[in-house]
């Protein structure tokens, strides 16, 4: 199975990189761009075919290492 984990900053946590990207896009002639938030995409290959187990395992991976839940949230996508 392939999984994708999206790690992003929690709402309310300042994202200086996102802000800089937003400013740059505005400067490039895209005034329609409002707030920008930057995150990470982590792709994982997971052995086995039990989707529920894979999802639970990846949740544990996120809690233990992939995300810092003090400042970040995550979403898991399984294919």
């Amino acid at each position: 199975m392939k999984a994708r984990v999206f790690v992003t900053l929690k709402n309310g946590v300042l994202d200086p990189q996102g802000k800089a990207i937003g400013h740059a896009l505005n400067g490039l002639g895209f005034p329609q761009v409002g707030e920008v938030r930057q995150g990470k995409l982590i792709e994982l290959e997971i052995a086995g075919s039990d989707a529920d187990k894979a999802r639970a395992d990846i949740k544990a991976m996120c809690e233990k290492l992939l995300a810092n839940t003090v400042i970040e949230k995550y979403e898991i996508e399984l294919k």
């Binding site: 300042l14 200086p16 810092n68 003090v70």
Partner: peptide, 17 residues
């Protein structure tokens, strides 16, 4: 230490980048 949860909070990218 914050990543190990020996101290609370987190250290983020400097506000001025």
């Amino acid at each position: 230490l914050t990543e190990s949860h020996l101290l609370p909070g987190a250290l983020m990218r400097n506000a001025g980048l």
